[in-house]
């Protein structure tokens, strides 16, 4: 399994950069992970989404889709795309240290 080093700590990730063990993530890692995605600095609104992703994952075992984020995170879908331009659900999941959202089939 691939690993990557964030803030000097080795963590397990998938080939496309998603954490496989969310417990290895700390809030201190978020700015560096965001910078890898071309997002800096992290604003309060970014953090609102990231914390929401973490709590949804803890509760449901999967990160929310963009549509669910838009309905429940307090940030509209339009704003989500401004915050995480290349796909809010995936990018925010990578920065929040949770596995790839299962999405829908």
């Amino acid at each position: 399994m691939p690993t990557k080093t964030v803030t000097g700590v080795e963590v397990d990730v998938t080939d496309d950069g998603f954490f496989t063990n969310p417990d290895q993530w700390t809030e201190a890692m978020a700015p560096e992970l965001a910078a890898d995605e071309g997002i800096e600095p992290l604003t309060d609104q970014h953090w609102q989404v990231l914390r929401f992703m973490r709590s949804e994952y803890a509760e449901k075992g999967t990160g929310p889709t963009v549509r669910v984020l838009g309905k429940t995170s307090g940030v509209t879908v339009k704003e989500l795309y401004q915050l995480f331009p290349k796909g809010p659900a995936k990018i925010a999941a990578r920065i929040a240290g949770i596995p790839k959202p299962r999405g829908c089939i």
């Binding site: 889709t65 549509r67 829908c104």
Partner: peptide, 8 residues
């Protein structure tokens, strides 16, 4: 538009 949809 987005998933899920009936009969993908």
């Amino acid at each position: 538009v987005d998933m899920p949809i009936k009969c993908p």
